[in-house]
Design a protein around this nucleic acid. Sequence first.
DNA 1: AGTATCTAATACTCAATAGTATCGGAATCG
DNA 2: CGATTCCGATACTATTGAGTATTAGATACT
Lengths: 200, 200
Amino acid sequence: MSTKPRDPPQTWARKRSVTRARVLAAAAEVIQEKGFHRTSLDQIAAHAGLTKGAVYSSFASKEELFLAVLEGRPHQLEPKLKARMTRAEYFHALGEAAAALLPQARAQGAFFAEFFLYALTHEDMRQRMAERYATRFQEVGTAPTLNGAERLALPPREMSSLVQALSMGLMFQHMLTPDEITPELVVKAFQLLAGAPDGE
Amino acid sequence: MSTKPRDPPQTWARKRSVTRARVLAAAAEVIQEKGFHRTSLDQIAAHAGLTKGAVYSSFASKEELFLAVLEGRPHQLEPKLKARMTRAEYFHALGEAAAALLPQARAQGAFFAEFFLYALTHEDMRQRMAERYATRFQEVGTAPTLNGAERLALPPREMSSLVQALSMGLMFQHMLTPDEITPELVVKAFQLLAGAPDGE
DNA sequence: AGTATCTAATACTCAATAGTATCGGAATCG
DNA sequence: CGATTCCGATACTATTGAGTATTAGATACT
């Protein structure tokens, strides 16, 4: 009976991943409220019902934890696509996707803000995020299901930059003045980007 | 030669304001590069060629200094207005004003990010900034010199929110991916907002 | 069962830094 | 000129918080 030397210890791995997940979730929550700098590892650990020891057994440093949290954030702005959408329909979907993010604006905004400050002094991180968005550039820009006949007002790459910038800007603005930025306005904004105010 | 009892001590006042200005300027510079949290008062003082004592003789706390720096920032996005502009001209001017801000994106972005994080836990500050932007809402929205006959695609208030959001978003996006956000693209973006791509 | 191994709690160290107390020196006024 | 007042430098305290060393307890392997 050969002792399988490569039999992965399943329970440990699970335990490990569970606490890792707990720490990550706790970190995400606390950071959303207070920001990364203002949050101590003790606070994060306590919020997870654990201690700093647990944090350091899962993450090498506070910075690592921060990056892991950032990485774990879902890609936002995922419009509901259908086959053969018209341009107007496509941008309407984009607008609705962006509007759906408004409730999370506070949380998202906190992370964006932290990230920007971090990227300010970490060129490698800036690039990583830039690449991450670049993926979406294509997706949004080429509008995969978009009826080939219709053309955008701008080249796909440029248009997707604008989409990105607009949704980010709307989120921040919503954070600042929640009442001014309504879901309807967001949808209208994207309609304007589409270049065809056909619905009035 | 009556000794004026209310003769204000000019030299002290000047001296005071000079060092205050030096500290403010130094703080602004350093914060732009590293962010507020990451900057110590010693660093700021040293950058101003002074010591912490000077800082505390001018500002009650680090927070006070931060707020003073924020308050001292110039209002951005000031389009060059002429009498009787067409809508297209007006939005073109807006676009150029926004494009002109791109070189400062890094600095501006740092302050925005810091501010948002601060506003996250300081409701009063959020309101103050919101009001500050509200002023611009009117200005931009009503487009004072805009030919009365032309109408915007959206009500002034909504439109100015979008203008605000878009310029902010473009700034952040430029910070992230400088090459994607060219001045020309910024101008085009505002043309789209205007709703009339007449020049194409 | 008994031993080896890994996780996470406890209890520290150590550096950074906001804020304070004190003092020296310059400008002001009588 | 002497006394006074205010600014700003120096030297200090106190606190916070990241990271480490150690250990107890749980889990797996034979």
